[in-house]
């Protein structure tokens, strides 16, 4: 387990080190010469009015919520997709092939139910106008 992921961890460390190095080196090589005008946020030359972090459209929240919900559906679909052939077979498969006449609709049925529920939710969200951005 650990061995498989060791390269990933190494790479992670390496990449983080890189990021730190880049940031650090650039921090050392440059000399900041801030002036008040340089420091104000760039808004096409117009003096900024108020704080940037005001309330923004609730649509973004909505997308976030929808994402959370639908993304989890994907989480369920991945294992199903991987095991679909096994689920479609009423008996254990032989050499990756289902013995003739042993196909089962179990996997398909399960997923159809799942998708049906998902579609209901999707249609609801759609008809409610949550997907249109106006």
């Amino acid at each position: 387990m650990l061995r498989t992921f060791l390269p990933v961890l190494l790479l992670l460390g390496f990449v983080v080190l890189n990021a730190v190095l880049i940031l650090g080196i650039s921090h050392m090589t440059i000399k900041a010469q801030p002036t008040p005008v340089k420091s104000i946020p760039y808004e096409s030359g117009i003096t900024p009015l108020g704080d940037a972090r005001e309330r923004f459209s609730v649509k973004f929240y909505l997308v976030a919520m929808l994402f959370i919900v639908f993304d989890i559906e994907t989480v369920f679909m991945i294992p199903w997709g991987v095991y679909y052939r096994q689920l479609s077979c009423a008996v254990p498969m032989v050499n990756g092939v289902c013995p003739a006449g042993q196909l089962s609709f179990f996997g398909l049925g399960e997923m159809l139910v799942f998708v049906a529920i998902l579609v209901v939710g999707f249609v609801y969200v759609w008809k409610k106008g949550a997907l249109t951005w106006d």
Binding site: A64, M65, V69, F76
Partner: peptide, 20 residues
């Protein structure tokens, strides 16, 4: 765990809406 994640996701969506 997968189920808990699902529930947590639904809860998160809901919680966000309620907090808003």
């Amino acid at each position: 765990v997968i189920m808990v994640m699902t529930v947590a996701a639904a809860e998160a969506a809901l919680g966000l809406a309620i907090v808003i």
